Computed example of a mutant assay.
Amino acid sequence: MSTPKASLFYVHVEFNKDHVTVDEDKITVGVRSKPVDGEANKEVVKKIARHFGVPSSKVAIRSGHRSRDKIIQITDLKS
């Protein structure tokens, strides 16, 4: 059995916007949700999963749960 491949990305979150922009290894995500009870983080994960065509379960916030700047891990990302 092979080990799943994981990729890390720096993510910057912008509020009151609705977009996903990828620039090499940095991603900017605009969210509409308020940063209350993890709602904005959930929206970030969903948008990144949709953008890369992977299930939300393959996207995890590794660092920056309470910050606009995060490190996101995507597992099983196809090249």
Rank of each mutant, 00 (worst) to 15 (best):
T3L: 15
T3D: 14
T3E: 15
T3I: 14
L8T: 09
Y10I: 10
Y10S: 14
E14H: 14
E14R: 13
E14L: 10
F15M: 06
F15V: 08
F15C: 06
N16E: 13
K17H: 15
D18N: 14
D18V: 09
H19T: 10
H19F: 15
V22Y: 06
E24W: 08
E24R: 12
E24Y: 08
E24Q: 12
E24L: 11
D25E: 07
K26D: 07
K26W: 04
I27L: 15
T28E: 10
T28Q: 07
V29E: 13
G30Y: 10
G30L: 09
R32C: 09
K34R: 11
E39A: 12
N41H: 04
K42F: 03
E43C: 07
V45H: 02
K46T: 04
K46L: 10
K47S: 02
I48N: 01
A49Y: 02
G53Y: 07
V54W: 01
P55K: 07
S56V: 11
S56Y: 06
S57Y: 01
S57P: 00
V59W: 00
A60S: 14
A60G: 08
A60C: 14
I61G: 03
R62A: 12
S63D: 10
S63V: 07
S67A: 15
R68H: 06
R68N: 12
K70V: 05
I71K: 04
I71Y: 00
Q73F: 04
Q73I: 02
Q73T: 01
Q73W: 02
I74V: 14
T75G: 02
T75Y: 01
D76G: 05
D76P: 00
D76M: 04
L77R: 02
L77D: 05
K78V: 11
